[in-house]
């Protein structure tokens, strides 16, 4: 049971990093990205390709970040022409195109079978390897949180929020919205790819099933339930959602429910949780602290 707890907490930390990435885009800047999972996938496949080509595993990180940066810049470029809702649909479509391409490509990505055999971090530290990995993920989550906090409290963070609140007014004050969008997409894409890199070396397997669009909506539910534009809140949302989903099988066993219940209950947790919070607590568990020229 303790190992299971370590496992769930490890995954929650990585989802927390992803939630922070989405929060920079959607929460603080108003960029409604439904294709976040593709940026995460750049990190997972960066790790897998480095491993498959016999490179040092750490080289998978810059490779993944470079791919995510390119994709993030492409998303940002689309944002110049498309309004917010159409941009969201476009990012979802691009993420699906990438996933389907990966599924149908064999030589580089291993197709639907994916790529396995990636090195597990701290494998030599058994039986304490799980705790060592969790410690690393906690440190990474804390550092990413600190970085995001500093960013959103900076002058640039204020410009992100002005763009979210009144984009045309922000332009009339000299803010270059294209530049803000580009920088936010670059930074958040790198964060998402970092999470993907760690995830790939945690599961030691990478496949297109990890990039399905419901994963994006799971991250969205973490952000909305935790508190849009509140970095502490989205981490809380990630842990809450991850633990709620992980413990569904135990509830099934306790109540002697059929196995189908697990998948259905997880969907209900994500969809129902999103709906409930949007209806009754749209600002989430930890609402944004609004106002202040220091970007809070």
């Amino acid at each position: 049971m303790f190992d299971f707890f370590i496992h769930v907490a490890s995954i929650a930390c990585l989802y927390g990093v992803l939630a922070l990435s989405l929060n920079l885009q959607a929460g603080f800047t108003g960029l409604v990205n439904f294709g976040l999972i593709a940026l995460f996938g750049c990190g997972t496949y960066g790790a897998a390709l480095a491993s498959g080509m016999g490179w040092h595993p750490l080289l998978g990180l810059p490779a993944g970040i470079a791919m995510a940066a390119l994709l993030g810049l492409f998303y940002a470029r689309l944002g110049r022409k498309l309004s917010s809702d159409y941009w969201g649909i476009a990012t979802l479509s691009i993420a699906e195109i990438i996933r389907i391409s990966i599924t149908n490509e064999q030589a580089l990505t291993g197709g639907a079978q994916g790529i396995s055999g990636l090195p597990l971090l701290f494998a030599g530290l058994k039986p304490y390897d799980g705790m060592a990995r969790l410690a690393l993920y906690v440190v990474v989550l804390a550092l990413v949180w600190l970085f995001c906090q500093r960013l959103v409290k900076s002058a640039f963070g204020l410009s992100m929020k002005l763009m979210r609140e009144e984009p045309q007014l922000a332009r009339s004050l000299g803010y270059d919205l294209d530049r803000i969008r580009r920088v936010v997409m670059l930074v958040s894409s790198a964060i998402a790819a970092f999470a993907g890199f760690l995830y790939a070396h945690y599961l030691t397997f990478v496949g297109p099933d990890q990039l399905v669009s419901p994963e994006t909506f799971l991250i969205w539910s973490m952000v909305i339930i935790g508190g849009v534009a509140n970095n502490r809140g989205v981490i809380a949302g990630a842990f809450l959602m991850q633990f709620a989903m992980a413990y569904v099988p135990f509830i099934k066993d306790a109540l002697e429910l059929p196995t189908d219940f697990v998948a259905a209950a997880r969907l209900i947790i994500v969809g129902g949780g999103l709906l409930a919070f949007l209806l009754w607590r749209p600002k989430g568990l930890f609402p944004e602290k609004v106002g202040g020229s220091n970007g809070r």
Binding site: L162, E165, Q168, L169, V290, G291, G292
Partner: peptide, 9 residues
């Protein structure tokens, strides 16, 4: 219209 940022002072 929309000529001020309401959340700022």
């Amino acid at each position: 219209t929309d000529n001020v940022f309401g959340t700022l002072t």
